[in-house]
Simulated assay, not measured.
Amino acid sequence: MKYLLLLGLNLLMAITSVAKQKYDFVVAQNGSGNFKTVQEAINAVPDFRKKITTIFIKNGTYREKLTLPTSKTLVTFIGEDVKKTILTFDDSAQKKNQFGEELGTTGSASFYIFANDFTAENITFANSAGPVGQAVAVRIDGDRVFFQNCRFLGNQDTLYTYGENSRQYYKNCYIEGTVDFIFGWSTAFFEDCQIFCKQTGFVTAAATMEGAKFGYVFKNCTITGSAIENSFYLGRPWRPHAQTVFIQCQLGKQINPEGWHNWDKPKAEKLAFYAEYQNTGPGANPETRVKWSKQLTDEEAKEYTREKVLGDWTPGTLYTAPPR
């Protein structure tokens, strides 16, 4: 009996030791971790650390307006449960600051990601302001940002892919919203994601820079929602050179047969690149799409792999800059 007790104690100590080694910091609202708030954990990360700092966030709703500064590189968030680990705030564009000025779209964000090499798993990111206009859940400036099994909740302007030179990868994520709820300048690859359309609106509003090789690419994603039939467009061009491509996606009845909208910008019809390839479902109607959109050939579709879109960055690995 004594031997079994000793064996059990040693096993427990070993498990505890491994758990401690796995995470650098633990955030828990009940005080059982290193910090009670997520921002405190971010602040504790050494500036420009050369190794990954892993922050484990226990279940709870953390009502915080968060900022990950440029100096906090190589940070990884891991949530305990994607539906129970929630980072949220309720600012909106029309809300006033202490000087009586409107926050604006950028100022409404619940979480600002300025640093490079940020990763998040099993976390819900939300803006809980409700249907009050622009209200951003996450704004991303940094390069090489990877979200896996995460949720993004909001209405208008939920996910702001802001950085002009930012590459982002979304794997097995859930993103919901109404008007332009995935928008911005960045290059972003969405794979095996669920895109949920609420009310009426536009899934994307890309602002791709002129000369950029890629904008948004959706691969093997499902477009569904609570919106009525034909009430959503796949995208409209926030900036004239917008690029958005849907490849082998399941498109629900919410998608309008025309597919794409020019945002009352006739010039954008010549400059924007909106394309599809082998989409299925009631919302996939190649024959009714606007004439200025494109159906890719087999050969053209080969250019839209994750490797080609993201370049020299492989998500989930430590990035090594190419030699000069």
Rank of each mutant, 00 (worst) to 15 (best):
L7K: 11
N10H: 06
L11P: 00
M13F: 10
S17V: 07
S17H: 09
V18C: 06
K20L: 11
Q21L: 14
G31P: 00
P46V: 11
R49Q: 13
T53C: 06
I55Q: 02
N59Q: 11
R63W: 02
F77C: 01
G79K: 04
E80K: 07
D81M: 02
T88Q: 14
D90N: 12
E101A: 12
S108L: 01
I113N: 14
F114Y: 15
A115H: 08
A115T: 13
A120W: 00
E121I: 08
I123A: 11
T124E: 02
V136F: 04
G142E: 06
V145G: 04
N149R: 14
S166Q: 02
K171Y: 13
K171S: 13
N172T: 14
E176C: 13
G184K: 07
G184F: 07
W185M: 14
F189R: 01
C193S: 09
C193D: 11
F202D: 14
T208I: 09
G211E: 10
F214D: 04
Y216R: 05
K219N: 14
S226V: 08
A227T: 03
N230H: 11
F232A: 03
G235Y: 04
C249T: 02
K253G: 08
N256T: 09
P257F: 02
W260D: 01
H261E: 12
Y274E: 03
N279Y: 02
E287V: 01
K302F: 08
T305Q: 07
D312H: 09
P315L: 03
R324M: 08
